[in-house]
Design a protein around this nucleic acid. Structure first.
Length: 647
DNA sequence: CAGTGAGCGAGCTTCCGCTTGACTT
């Protein structure tokens, strides 16, 4: 019996089905060797020699591969066709250790692709493995050298990294833009005009930015003569969106369902494990040819020829850092619009997400939608006003994948050039420019992807990390930096600017490509980075002052020392969340609980307020503000009655 | 489930990326 080794156990099961009994298939469950967690694991004096060790927690997977390999005939290592996959392949080869292994790759899980791969085995691509080593060593050096500086200069337990610090920096800088933003006044001036039917035109050739000008314009418009000056009709075509990647799926589920990246990814995982969708951690929009063919059949049968474009649509990945190891996220059976899913706690989510993925995918192979767009220009003295109308002529792919928040049809009446219109009303509207929006999960993931920072497997974890570290807080879905986040980002950007430049990762990727192509040695790339970095580390460690973290003031005197020493109450963040203390600490040691009220009285004593409390870093519980007089406490939110709390 | 901050300094914290499973943040 031959043996095939892949990363995902679900993939292993699927392959077994294709290949029958002459092949055994085993999974590594991701990486099996890595740098040790408890120490640097990189010998900076010996050309950065990395100390890759079997990973804690992967003993079973490793053992499994060892035993199965001993009995196997041919051994095909079919880990993912990308940098990390090649590294895993190399580690598998080291563990099997008998020289019998061959490396194969495929980009889609179809019988043809796998058979083709088996027919063309190769060896390990050591240049690509080297690129992974460089990536891994760089991240380790950045993370494990900078974090201890934060412990020393800011606060214990903090962390820094090529990815997480950039995420925090984005949020901090956005907050600054919002703070310094000054709203600008501007006016939009509309006129309702009519011939047989009334329609609305907007002033377009004069900028109005205050009431005085607006009044003058309105005054003139009231007296003006309105003549249709120009009519433009055009056909506007809209092509469907590409199928989902991890990033676009997370963004869309966030926008449409309000889901967190975590919720979307864990729902997708369940769909993947049930064989309903292709792999959900991907940066590619490629689609298996066989899936396209099936989808075209389905579209033809279900919607008719009009909805089927002449040729299949194939999409190109635009993201420059994409590795394209997998297909796009799509239903494995494009003709199944609603899969049968057993009723469980999660089935509603699964059905919802499946339906979204299915619609997006089938729509991506459907005909272009067509709008008739009409623009009517109206002259009123020196003023030019315009109305734009749009009518859906043929829905095409929009029949299936309707995008919320898109304007409805605006139908304009038939008028001719030169016709005089009657003014019904002038409607001046005062507006103000809006500050940039705070980041939410969707926009943060989008921006990180554009910068090439983070990978499909890490978008959701990044969002958790920056919150766990208390660098940012999420409220009503939007991220705000904490004082710690601001202090850490400022400290790191000031002292290690080059590492946290927004294009640092993109430049790193360029270097890694050179390593993968065999044009550069990985040690040279790391050496080039580390020399100046090490110098900087030493000088910052020696010279940088300890960072003071801004505290939130309560504007109340300290009950213990407020009278004689003018201590004031401030909010500090400790190991167990926020608490109130005296600004004069350590001279005054007054502390009190920080109460985060949820707006309801204690269900037990009816006198205190229910407040949110924390135990350890994570666990929240609800308690009474009168503790210890009232000992009421609950894990469950007392505002929620019976209803399931979907996270 | 009732702690916390500074500094003293035992021993400890920390990265990104690949997987899933255990568990609810």
């Amino acid at each position: 019996m031959n043996l095939i080794i892949v990363e995902s156990p679900t993939k292993a099961k699927t392959l077994s089905r294709f290949l029958g009994s002459s092949y055994g298939v085993e999974a590594t469950m991701g990486h099996i060797k890595d740098l040790p967690k408890s120490k640097l694991g990189v010998d900076v004096d010996k050309n950065f020699a990395p100390d890759y060790q079997p990973m804690v927690g992967k003993e079973e997977a490793i053992k499994n591969i060892e035993t199965k390999s001993k009995k196997a005939g041919k051994i095909y290592i079919a880990t993912d066709p990308d940098r990390e996959g090649e590294a895993i392949a190399n580690h598998v080869k080291e563990i099997v250790g008998n020289g019998k292994t061959k490396r194969i790759v495929f980009h889609e899980i179809t019988k043809e692709a796998v058979e083709e791969a088996i027919a063309h085995p190769r060896g390990i691509d050591h240049h690509l493995v080297d690129a992974q080593i460089a990536r891994r060593v760089l991240d380790r050096l950045v993370g494990y050298k900078l974090s201890p500086i934060l412990w020393k200069k800011v606060r214990r337990g903090l962390s820094a990294g090529r990815v997480q610090t950039v995420a925090v920096r984005l949020i901090v800088e956005r907050e600054r833009e919002i703070e310094k933003f000054k709203a600008q006044e501007y006016w939009e001036i509309y006129c309702d005009v009519k011939k047989d039917q009334q329609f609305r035109v907007q002033l377009i050739n004069k900028k109005v930015d205050n009431k005085k000008t607006a009044d003058k314009v309105v005054h003139n418009l009231k007296k003006a003569k309105y003549v249709v000056a120009n009519i433009k009709r055009s056909e506007v075509k809209k092509n469907p969106y590409p199928p989902f990647t991890t990033s676009t799926m997370s963004q869309t589920a966030s926008r449409l369902f309000g889901w967190s990246a975590r919720r979307t990814m864990s729902t997708a995982q369940k769909l993947y494990e049930r064989g309903l969708i292709t792999y959900h951690r991907t940066d590619s929009v490629n689609i298996a040819v066989s899936a396209v063919a099936k989808t075209r059949e389905y579209i033809k049968a279900q919607f008719g020829d009009r909805y089927l474009p002449d040729a299949p649509r194939f999409y190109k990945t635009t993201s420059k850092s994409a590795q394209e190891a997998h297909e796009a996220i799509r239903p494995t059976k494009p003709d199944v619009s609603q899969p049968k899913i057993k009723k469980t706690k999660w089935s509603a989510d699964m059905v919802k997400l499946y339906s979204l993925i299915w619609k997006r995918f089938v729509a991506c192979q459907m005909a272009t939608s067509i709008f008739d767009r009409t623009t009517i220009d109206v002259k009123a003295g020196d003023y030019l006003l315009r109305a734009s109308g749009q009518i859906l002529k043929f829905d095409g792919w929009k029949k299936l994948y309707a995008v919320k928040m898109e304007a409805d049809d605006v139908i304009l009446p038939e008028v001719a050039v030169g016709v005089t219109l009657q003014l019904v009303k002038v409607d001046p509207q005062q507006k103000f420019t809006q500050p940039p929006a705070k980041f939410n999960e969707a926009s943060l993931i989008k921006t990180l992807e554009e910068l090439g920072v983070g990978r499909p497997s890490t978008y959701a974890p990044i969002i958790s990390t920056i919150q766990t570290r208390q660098y940012v807080e999420k409220s009503e879905g939007k991220f705000t930096p904490t004082n710690i986040g601001i202090a850490v980002a400022d400290f790191l950007v000031k002292n290690f600017e080059s590492v946290f430049e927004y294009d640092f990762t993109a430049e790193m990727e360029n270097d890694l490509d050179r390593v993968a192509d065999g044009d550069k040695k990985w040690q040279g790339v790391i050496g080039g980075f580390y020399k100046p970095f090490e110098k900087k580390l030493k000088s910052v460690e020696k010279n940088a002052k300890r960072v003071k973290i801004e505290t939130e003031k309560l504007n109340k005197p300290c009950p213990k020392c407020g009278k004689e020493s003018k201590g004031e109450l401030v909010v500090r963040v400790g190991r167990f969340g926020k608490f109130v203390s005296c600004s004069r600490f350590p001279d005054c040691d007054y502390t009190d609980r920080y109460e985060e009220r949820i707006g309801m009285r204690c269900p037990d004593c009816k006198k205190g307020h229910v407040i949110i409390k924390k135990t350890g870093k994570w666990k929240k519980f609800f308690g009474c503000s009168r503790y210890p007089d009232c000992k009421w406490a609950s894990w469950k939110d007392p505002r929620v009655k019976k209803e399931k709390t979907a996270s």
